[in-house]
Nucleic acid binder design. Structure first.
Length: 433
RNA sequence: GUCCCCAUCGUCUAGUCUGGCCUAGGACACGAGCUUUUCAAGCUUGCGACACCGGUUCGAAUCCGGUUGGGGACGCCA
């Protein structure tokens, strides 16, 4: 058994295409068949190398590998010869305008397809007009090249989007005209944007590569895509590509169009981040830190990155978020969130900070439990509640009002940076007086 | 306009093929509570759906017909 994914390099790989590819891939792997990639680059004007590169890159990133790859632009001879044959057989004719186009004469009949997902679908070809096979520029049309290639490449199952149902009768008659045996068809539902119609930019129809930039893990994205129109059963939500290989069957795919939901994708991504080791996360995070202006991100070793990620990975839903949270730990100076500064650092806190700074400086052992003990003792001695002191301290150290446990954070920050950042705030008040 | 596809919580879905186990299960989101120095996470919990109308049947989310609603296709784009 053999399936294919046939993207056209006239645009980036998007959610819908990736899902179609995923279902083909899974079906092939589940049935020990082969999966081929066919680049439908017949439109010379609109096909772009940059799109092709993005598609190939994104597919690899998602973990969807292929057994063969073919380019339709290299097969024009084949299409022309076959069109000539139909011409000779009297099944097609030359365009009357003298443009050189070859047009298939649509027979008037009833054709039907036994779709693996929809069951029997019947069409009346009398309602379909004659179809161009070869355009005047001698390039083949989609429906023609598609049939020729699917037959030539031995495709046994065609899994594609619902939107191709109406192309099916056009292709069915071509299979017959060319004397090819029919493959099986499975039309999977489309993915709708949150507005209800086709996915648009606003509705999350960004390129797959964009999701990478946004800080999604490929495993999470693939997992989400699987859940759109298919379910592994047993109320399972988290499922790997490997696990799905043994459970997937295209016959179990849904008929209903699914609406893309960023919230669930975000949730899945957070689950995957939580379940990824801080060591692995460190490698993934470097480009994100660099992008955030951390020049020497590449030189950050795991030893300094790992404890910080340990602190934040439970609470981030994207790598971008994780990088935002981790950055203050490596930046030279803390960037204060204006609202946070206003709320907790507008009143002179330098007195208590001086005391606290001194206690921290003298701690023999700079670990969370000791830090916490020293902190609580200092607060008590100062006659302040822990809350009164902890919030300004958090802002002084991280610039933010939210974050992980204070004392673990201080330990991870280390004594040097902790003291330096406290001194900076103390100085802030000295200067303003 | 013509043809085609689809119809379970706001969203993704289980259940539909093989009617009874469904006063319809799970997840996301949302609300409440617990926990907590904060925000998350986690745990507990609440809200919430078989589009409608007819039929078949002892019995229908499940089968049939219609209505309505949504989506798609009607290119010398793919």
């Amino acid at each position: 058994m053999k399936v294919r994914f046939a993207p056209s390099p006239t645009g980036y790989l998007h959610i819908g295409g990736a899902r179609t590819c995923l279902f083909n891939w899974l079906y092939a792997r589940a049935n020990k068949g082969s999966f081929i990639l066919r680049i439908e680059d017949t439109d010379q004007a609109r096909s772009k190398k940059e799109f092709l590169d993005e598609i190939l890159f994104s597919l690899k990133w998602l973990g969807l590998d292929w057994d063969e790859v073919h380019y339709q632009s290299q097969r024009f001879e084949i299409y022309r010869d076959l069109a000539q044959r139909l011409l000779a057989d009297g099944k097609a004719y030359l365009a009357e305008d003298g443009s050189g186009a070859i047009i298939y004469k649509m027979p008037q009949k009833t054709v039907s397809v036994e779709d693996m997902i929809h069951g029997s679908i019947v069409f009346d070809t009398a309602l379909i007009k004659d179809q161009v096979l070869i355009k005047s520029d001698q390039s083949p049309t989609y429906n023609f090249a598609c049939v020729v290639d699917d037959a030539a490449m031995g495709i046994t199952h065609i899994i594609r989007g619902d939107d191709h149902i109406s192309n099916t009768p056009k292709q069915l008659v071509l299979y017959e005209a060319l004397g090819y045996s029919l493959p099986k068809f499975a039309h999977i539902p489309m993915i709708l944007g949150s507005g209800g119609g086709r996915m648009s930019k606003r509705a999350g129809a960004t390129a797959i590569s964009e999701y990478r930039t946004l800080g999604f893990l490929p495993q999470a994205l693939v997992n989400y895509l699987m859940l759109l129109g298919w379910s592994p059963g047993n109320n399972q939500e988290i499922i790997s590509l490997k696990d799905a290989e043994s459970k997937f069957d295209i016959c179990d795919a849904n008929k209903t169009a699914a609406t893309f939901d960023m919230n669930k994708l975000l949730w899945l991504n957070s689950q995957y981040i939580k379940n990824t080791s801080a060591e692995d996360l460190a490698g993934l995070l470097r480009p994100f830190l660099k992008e955030r202006g951390l020049e020497d991100a590449d030189n950050l070793d795991g030893k300094s990155l790992v404890p910080v990620l340990q602190l934040f990975k439970e609470r981030a839903s994207t790598l971008a978020e994780l990088a935002d949270a981790a950055k203050p730990f490596f930046a030279e100076t803390v960037e204060f969130d204006p609202a946070a500064k206003e709320k907790f650092l507008s009143q002179d806190i330098s007195g208590p900070f001086n005391v606290l700074r001194e206690r921290f400086a003298q701690l023999p052992d700079f670990h969370a439990p000791e830090i916490e003990a020293a902190f609580r003792k200092a607060a008590e001695d100062l006659g302040m509640s822990t809350k009164q002191l902890i919030h300004p301290l958090r802002v002084a150290l991280s610039g933010k009002t939210v974050g992980p446990g204070m004392f673990e954070m201080i330990e991870t920050l280390g004594r040097d940076r902790t003291l330096k950042r406290m001194e900076r705030v103390i100085l802030l008040f000295k200067q303003s007086v």
